[in-house]
């Protein structure tokens, strides 16, 4: 039982890098959608409200999206 729990817990260890990349993809989808709807570039507030994610968090995901080395290379160098 303990063994199974440990396995599940380890498996549930999602790394930030992965979660930020997922957020990045969501941000881009919502940005496209809102651009069509509003006929202009959406602001960060508008994207943040639609996604229910903090504006500041979104800026972190933007970096992880366009710069894949961020989060990865540093620790492995």
């Amino acid at each position: 039982m303990g063994e199974i729990k440990r396995f599940l817990r380890d498996d549930g260890m999602i790394k930030v890098s992965r979660s930020l990349k997922e957020t990045y993809q969501k941000v881009y989808c919502v940005k496209e959608k809102l651009s069509k709807k509003l006929q202009r570039e959406p602001t960060l507030d508008e994207i943040s409200k639609e996604l229910e994610i903090d504006k500041e968090e979104i800026t972190m995901a933007l970096e992880a999206g366009y710069n894949p080395e961020y989060l990865y290379d540093t620790i492995h160098q």
Binding site: V27, E41, P42, T43, E56, I58, T59, L62, E63
Partner: peptide, 16 residues
């Protein structure tokens, strides 16, 4: 880059 963007996020810029 993240620090500067998180700070100016308060002004509600576009992603561009």
């Amino acid at each position: 880059r993240v620090v500067v963007s998180a700070f100016i996020a308060q002004l509600d810029p576009t992603i561009e």
